[in-house]
Write a protein that binds this DNA or RNA. Structure first.
Lengths: 231, 231
DNA sequence: CGTGTTCTTGAGAACGATCAATGGCGGTGG
DNA sequence: CCACCGCCATTGATCGTTCTCAAGAACACG
């Protein structure tokens, strides 16, 4: 029969996607995956490239396949705040809204899977399980943003840096952790100057809580104490 | 006929609800409204009463009918940060998650409409239009939280206070605005001490941008300049 | 092996917190 | 009705933390 189900003849690219397990896409039904596949196209960003600009119309929604992007907001005089990081499986962009209130910029090389915002909105509306998954993620992100507000509003510089190192350590398998960010980016995330970040790191080193093996790597020597300092 | 549609005989309390137009409930189908009505019960809180405690299990989801609640997180030594305010029509609680990462406390007398978290989750899952509305709200809240992160991380005390006054003014119809918060609460929201808030208010008064008619009311004299100071 | 970038360290200034005292307002009870 | 009390807000003086400016060191790149 040459009238075999046409779906079989368009194998989904999603199937082999390395971010599949972590992304919203994991809840796609086979039909949804095929529909998504037709709409999405791959995009790559080099380090420093910006996908969405603050205050611009959001034309795209993307799902990160690999790499890390930062979400940043800034003031007229150039002061910048990193609002969050997004990695493999995370969504970037703002469905159901026109203006983006932040920029999305690649921290390193990034691959993602993008579609037009209106197309994605239609797709989501047609698949309640997708909207449910988006809701769960949005609520999680909201919790994370709010926890960060406590850090920005009330924690001291030392507590902020310790908190960040704990977060890095939690995301890393071994005891030896790589800084995924430059000092400048850590400052922008913590609401501190680059010099203060550096000084607090040397304080922690001096206290024996961490060792800086390399400029880009550290080792947690006393996790208990480090967590305590994170307050 | 005594077999008239049974739905007609259980009029929905939602129908007369004053928060109806602003809440997620506005998208309820008649059937959804009746189902919601069976599950929800009214709750009142006095000023200072806490509905949900930080780090506690979230047992309830509520929709505010009138009044204002604050969402707060705090550190072991008592430092506190207000993460946001919720008013008529807003949802409080954390569906689809067990632990609340913040407390919910009444700023003044509050009336709300509450149901058990699991019951609400089932209800939401059964009504995709409700989940869609929740998603839109969650994304909006996320944008607001992130805008606040820029304030907490990078704005000066003067800019923070001006930003807050602009927000108050935007929510008020006339030029004469009431502070919905005490100085302490404003400090907790802005990540500042109570004294700094007070000093910045007098600076703005001295500059002629606002007049403090009463301790609890101010008038915007130069909105353009005030916005400029909000950076 | 330079050259540019990033990181560290230091000195000084500025900003906001803390401590302390005073003033204003509302509620309560005599 | 007034006096008292408690809470909230303002103002001042001082202290500490963090930022800014500046120089030098370590590293990454061609």
């Amino acid at each position: 029969m040459h009238l075999a189900p046409v779906e079989q003849s368009t194998p989904s690219r999603c199937v082999g996607c390395t971010a599949r397990g972590r992304a919203v896409c994991s809840v796609f039904s086979p039909a949804a995956a095929r529909a998504f596949d037709r709409l999405a196209r791959p995009i790559t960003l080099a380090r420093g490239e910006t996908l969405v600009w603050e205050d611009d119309d959001t034309l795209l929604v993307g799902f990160i396949v690999s790499g890390v992007v930062k979400l940043t907001a800034s003031l007229a005089d150039g002061r910048e705040q990193i609002l969050g990081l997004a990695g493999a499986g995370d969504m970037v962009g703002r469905p159901f809204g026109t203006r983006s209130s932040y920029s999305v910029t690649a921290v390193g090389p990034v691959r993602l899977c993008a579609l037009g915002r209106p197309a994605f909105e239609q797709f989501a509306a047609a698949h309640p399980e997708v909207e449910h998954a988006l809701l769960l993620r949005a609520l999680d992100e909201l919790d994370r943003a709010r926890r960060w507000m406590l850090l920005l509003g009330r924690k001291s510089a030392g507590e902020r840096v310790a908190s960040l190192l704990v977060e890095f350590a939690e995301r890393s398998p071994g005891n030896d952790v790589a800084f995924p960010l430059t000092r400048q980016q850590m400052g922008d995330l913590l609401g501190l100057s680059i010099e203060t970040v550096s000084r607090e790191l040397t304080k922690l080193r001096g206290a024996g809580l961490i060792t800086l093996t390399d400029l880009k790597h550290f080792r947690v020597e006393d996790e208990r104490c480090l967590r305590q300092r994170a307050a």
